[in-house]
């Protein structure tokens, strides 16, 4: 029968009492200090609550400065303008060209070479017949731009193409273009792949 007496002990347990000691002052003070610290920290190093400030940066200005200042070369804006007028129709705005017809300029193994020697010739006199770019075959014709574009225009657009879409290359100068223009003034017809490959890239 010890079982039963235990049972009533379980049921008749009184509920606990509550003391009325006030909340300790240290806790209130500490909370105040920490909340103040949170507010100060959020204002000082919360990136000005700007949506573009992520971990590595502290302020919106730092994000701006985080990009290496780009001083655009002289040829960039006029070059892009020429490209937008004469080239974009075939080679596309992103330099990808069109499969089978117009070879890409972006990351192309004809563009990413040491010098613009062949490119200047192609722009001056055009190109026709089969052509292998990045190990893909193309077969179409490109017009000559000798009469429409000045030396400066050609230098600008080639410099632009050689440095856009992830391409990396040296810029072309108007003097270089003039030299080639003079050297090829009797050429008359469009280039072929075979002829171009004879010409040094630089």
């Amino acid at each position: 029968m010890s079982e039963l007496s235990n049972k009533s002990a379980v049921e008749n347990d009184s509920e606990p009492k509550v003391g009325l000691t006030p909340a300790p002052l240290w806790a209130v003070t500490l909370l105040g200090i920490l909340v103040y610290a949170l507010i100060v920290r959020s204002i000082n190093s919360g990136g000005d609550f700007d949506p573009n400030v992520y971990g590595r940066f502290e302020t919106p200005k730092e994000v701006q400065d985080g990009h290496p200042a780009v001083v655009l070369p002289d040829w960039f804006v006029p070059g892009r303008k020429v490209y937008g007028t004469y080239c974009v129709g075939c080679h596309q705005g992103n330099g990808a060209g069109a499969p089978g017809q117009f070879p890409p300029l972006a990351k192309s193994d004809w563009v990413n070479v040491e010098g613009p020697n062949r490119m200047v010739r192609i722009v001056l006199n055009g190109l026709q017949g089969p052509l292998k770019v990045n190990a893909v075959d193309y077969n179409n014709a490109m017009l000559a731009w000798r009469d429409q574009l000045t030396d400066q225009d050609i230098a600008n657009v080639i410099s632009y193409v050689r440095n856009e879409w992830g391409n990396k290359g040296s810029a072309a100068t108007a003097a270089e273009v003039k030299a080639i223009r003079d050297a090829t003034k009797d050429k008359g017809e469009q280039w072929t792949e075979g002829q171009l490959l004879q010409i040094p890239v630089k």
Partner: peptide, 20 residues
């Protein structure tokens, strides 16, 4: 986390305040 800095700053600070 790939979230703006202010969210992260608040979250870090709150981890300390939980102590109280």
């Amino acid at each position: 986390a790939p979230l703006p800095r202010w969210i992260i700053t608040i979250s870090e600070s709150v981890n300390l305040i939980f102590l109280v």
